[in-house]
Amino acid sequence: MRILLVEDDRKAARLLARGLQEEGFVVDVAHSAEEGEDESYAVDYDLIVLDWMLPGKQGIDFCRDLRARAIQTPVLMLTARDATADRVAGLNTGADDYLTKPFEFEELLARIRALLRRSDISRPLVLALADLTLDPVSHQVTRAGAPLVLTPKEYAILLILLRQAGEVVSRARLAEQIWQADLIGIDNLIDVHVRNLRGKVDAPGMAQLIHTVRGRGFRLAENSGG
């Protein structure tokens, strides 16, 4: 599952993104409504977590514009406003749920899962390539029918690679989406996680699926060409 988090408080965004990633979600972060809009044009998200109070364009206006574009992605609105009129206003713009700050991460997670269950996209097709499968709902990963035990980081990397199967995924993209960090300083860490993931997915006797594309990144495919 891929979530867009639109939050201008960079520390809060980093902590929320890290928590969601540890739960197996792929998280993209935007720090303004304008950034969020750019991301929403480029990616079909499973859910958007949206702060009401943003610099410049407000989150409530971003939500209204999403619905005007006929985008039905579930939206969870975060705000310090707790008046009934504000909650009604947020829901009337097209938000699916409303969570008042401060909140516990466990409640945020429960609200997210509830929205995904209520959405048609709560039961996505299992992602597969050759004999490798990944179920985004149960988080179960198998190769040739045998379950693979992955760490949260390995799972997140594999999810991105499967969603972009056949395409090259750069180290910079992995750094941004999984670690919420620049590539500088963690490129070796990424290589370690990919190497460990490859050891599980491409075990001895298995056809290689994870390929390193020199100078560009990684590619999940049945062959190394392309």
Rank of each mutant, 00 (worst) to 15 (best):
V126F: 07
S170D: 11
D131F: 01
E104D: 15
A146L: 13
V149W: 04
Q164T: 13
L148T: 03
I157N: 00
L99P: 06
P102L: 10
E104T: 12
I157L: 14
K101W: 05
V168E: 09
P136W: 06
L108P: 02
D131C: 07
V168Y: 07
T133L: 00
L150Y: 00
I160H: 01
L132R: 00
L108I: 03
A130W: 08
Q140R: 14
G145C: 13
R123G: 09
A144G: 12
L116V: 05
T151R: 07
P124W: 05
R163M: 14
I160N: 00
P102G: 11
V149N: 12
T151G: 04
L159I: 09
L159K: 11
V169D: 03
E154D: 05
D135E: 11
T151S: 15
Q140P: 05
F103A: 14
T100K: 08
S138P: 11
A114S: 14
A146G: 11
G166L: 06
T100M: 12
L108R: 03
R111Y: 02
A165L: 08
L150H: 02
G145V: 11
R163E: 13
R113I: 09
R118V: 08
R163S: 08
L125K: 14
A110R: 07
L115S: 05
V169N: 00
L134F: 08
V169K: 03
A110L: 13
V141A: 05
L132G: 01
P136I: 11
L125I: 12
K153T: 15
A110F: 10
A110T: 06
K101A: 03
E154Y: 03
R117N: 13
P124Q: 07
I160W: 06
G166H: 05
L99Q: 02
D135Q: 10
K101S: 05
F105I: 11
F105R: 08
L129I: 08
R113S: 06
D131M: 07
A128F: 03
L134H: 02
L99R: 00
I157H: 08
S138Y: 10
K101L: 03
I121E: 04
L132S: 04
R123D: 13
E107S: 09
Q164F: 09
R117F: 06
S119K: 08
E107N: 06
A165N: 07
D131E: 13
A165W: 05
G166M: 02
A128R: 14
V168N: 03
F103D: 07
R111G: 01
L148V: 01
L129P: 04
D131V: 04
E106P: 01
D131A: 08
V126N: 00
A128V: 09
L109I: 09
E104Y: 13
K153I: 15
F105K: 07
L115M: 13
K153V: 15
L125G: 15
L158I: 09
E107A: 05
S119I: 04
R117M: 10
D120L: 14
I160T: 06
A130V: 05
L159A: 14
R123W: 10
L150Q: 04
I112F: 10
E107P: 05
A165F: 09
L159P: 02
R123I: 13
I112C: 11
L125H: 15
P147F: 09
L148A: 08
V126H: 02
